[in-house]
């Protein structure tokens, strides 16, 4: 019963995190929200019994994706242009 609940809750959290990531106009905040999404994605992988993938997502999603996103934002600009 609890495992079913968990299988329902984490996807919902994931979708919320993705929504947060795209709603921000501050790209740095978007990158942080994307890191949260990747964190939750990794947790979901973990709970779906895929620890291999969870480690890969941890190493790549949590660390390297955010790092290169931050570097790119640093080399360009932080705010999205006005619509």
């Amino acid at each position: 019963m609890w495992s079913e609940l968990i299988h329902v809750v984490i996807p919902v959290l994931l979708v919320i995190a993705a929504l947060v990531a795209i709603l921000m106009r501050d790209l740095l905040a978007s990158a942080v929200a994307l890191a949260v999404m990747s964190l939750l994605l990794s947790l979901e992988f973990y709970i779906l019994q895929a620890p291999d993938v969870a480690i890969a997502e941890a190493g790549i999603g949590a660390c390297i994706t955010t790092a290169i996103l931050v570097i790119a934002i640093k080399n360009t600009r932080r705010m999205e242009e006005e619509a």
Partner: peptide, 21 residues
């Protein structure tokens, strides 16, 4: 548990990058 170790160590790097920015 290995996965938890990975997260404990690595997510801190994200924080550092944003802090550096």
């Amino acid at each position: 548990i290995d996965v938890a170790i990975v997260y404990a160590v690595l997510s801190f790097i994200t924080t550092l990058y944003v802090a550096k920015y």
